[in-house]
Computed example of a mutant assay.
Amino acid sequence: MKIALWILIFLGTFSFMEFMAWFTHKYIMHGFLWVLHKDHHKKDHDSWFERNDAFFIFYAVVSMSLIMLGAETSFWYGWPLGFGILAYGIAYFTVHDIFIHQRFKIFRNANNRYAKGIRRAHKMHHKHIGKEDGECFGMLIVPFKYFKK
C-alpha cells in the first residue's frame, strides 16, 4: 500500500508542477521577478547562463530539501514530493531548454505533431518581448489550438 501511495504522490506532484510552471511564469516571472526573467525573452548578455536560470535553482533547492527531509526524518512523503519535482524539472529542462531553445544542439529534427505544437506555442509566447501580453501556459501541456495538422 505504501508503494502505491508513493507512486500516487510522485505522479500528483509531477502533474501539479505543470500548474506551478504556469502560475510561476504568469504571476512571478512576468510579475515582480521580471528582472530575472526578461533576459530569457530579450537576450542582453553573451553568457550561456541567464538570470532566468535562478528559477531552476529555486526548484532544485526545494526538491533536494524534500528528498533530504525524507531521507533524514520519518517524513517519508519528502521522497515522492522531491522526486516528483525533480522529474518535472528534468522534463521541463529537456523540452524547454534543450528542445525548444537548443541550449544543447540535440532533438533538432523532431518533427511530430507534439513537437510542432510545443514549438508553435512557445513561439507565440516569445512573440512579445515585454513583461505584459505574453501568453503563459505550462510547458508539457499547451492549448490544443497549437496542435494543427
Rank of each mutant, 00 (worst) to 15 (best):
I98W: 13
M64V: 15
G82S: 07
T73S: 13
H96V: 02
G70Q: 01
I85K: 05
Y88A: 06
P80C: 05
H96L: 04
R51C: 00
A71I: 10
I100M: 06
F75C: 07
H101D: 01
A71D: 07
T73G: 01
H101Q: 01
L69K: 04
L66C: 11
F58I: 13
I100R: 04
T73R: 00
S65P: 08
D53H: 13
W76R: 13
H101K: 11
N52P: 03
A60C: 13
Y59S: 15
F55A: 00
I100E: 01
A91P: 02
M64F: 15
L69G: 05
M68D: 10
Y88W: 09
T94S: 14
L69F: 01
F93D: 09
F93I: 10
M64T: 14
A60S: 14
G84M: 02
I90P: 02
W79S: 08
Y92R: 09
F56K: 06
F56E: 07
G82N: 08
E50Y: 15
S74K: 14
G84Y: 03
I57M: 10
F58D: 08
I100F: 13
F56A: 13
S63A: 15
M68N: 14
F58R: 01
F99I: 02
S63V: 08
E50V: 03
H96G: 03
V62F: 13
W76C: 09
A87H: 05
F104T: 12
L69Y: 02
W79N: 03
W76P: 01
R103G: 00
A87F: 01
S74Q: 14
I100D: 02
E72H: 06
T94C: 11
D53V: 08
I85Q: 03
T94A: 14
R51D: 03
I57Y: 12
P80V: 09
V62P: 03
G89Y: 05
S63G: 12
I57Q: 05
E72M: 13
A60G: 13
I67A: 10
